[in-house]
Simulated assay, not measured.
Amino acid sequence: MAMIETSRLRLRRWRETDAAPLARVNADPEVMRWIGDGRVRDERQTRAGLEAMERMWEAEGFGLFAVELRATAEVIGFTGLSVPDFLPEVSATVEVGWRLGRPHWGRGLATEAATAAVRFGFEDRGLERIISIVQVGNDASERVMAKLGMRLERDTVDPTCGRPVRLYELTQDRFRALGAATRRVPRNDAGQ
């Protein structure tokens, strides 16, 4: 599967034309504040990142999707699955992550996109467990993790930058249980 649509978003594989809009996202210091050591990335670094994302797709059968608004086809960031090789203690695990441009914060778009990515991981790729890693202090991302049904597993440190991070997890069993709990039971004409 190379594309997923939600009510407001389209998650798809990367195109050459996506480098410039993603570079604008990566150039915003507020967006990058909680990524690695917090440094912004230029267009050259962004293009290298896109190439790495596509290699992940080819090697693993999953990766990070470009996220675009369905209404306008504007690329606003990314979401999807990756292997967090920066954190050796969990490098054999799959992580869900997201990064959206600041104009798109606070509208539930990260949760909508990440929910679709998690579903893709469990339902289409048969994963048993998905984690997410967040720097301590990034409360907005921790709220997304809570909405996904993830539970805090442990605190640790990102060895690439020395910043404290929290590791959250969601198992396929919990994902299924949460899905069943949120499905509406059809009512008959008597309202029962």
Rank of each mutant, 00 (worst) to 15 (best):
G106C: 05
G106N: 06
G106I: 02
R107F: 07
G108S: 15
L109M: 08
L109T: 02
L109E: 00
L109D: 02
L109H: 02
A110I: 07
E112P: 12
E112L: 10
E112Y: 12
A113P: 09
A114M: 13
A114L: 14
A114E: 12
A114K: 10
T115V: 00
T115N: 04
A116E: 04
A117V: 01
A117Y: 04
A117N: 04
A117C: 03
A117D: 04
A117M: 01
A117Q: 04
V118D: 09
R119I: 02
F120N: 12
F120A: 12
F122C: 04
F122S: 05
E123A: 13
E123W: 07
D124Q: 14
D124H: 10
D124V: 06
D124E: 15
R125W: 09
G126I: 08
L127E: 12
L127C: 11
L127I: 13
L127Q: 14
E128H: 10
E128M: 01
E128S: 08
E128F: 00
R129W: 01
I130R: 01
I131Q: 04
I131L: 15
S132T: 13
S132M: 10
I133N: 08
I133K: 07
I133D: 00
V134R: 02
V134L: 04
Q135C: 06
Q135F: 06
Q135S: 02
V136T: 10
V136A: 10
V136Y: 00
V136E: 11
V136I: 10
V136G: 02
G137K: 08
G137A: 08
G137W: 13
N138K: 02
N138H: 07
N138L: 01
N138F: 01
D139C: 03
A140P: 06
A140M: 00
S141C: 08
E142L: 12
R143W: 05
R143S: 11
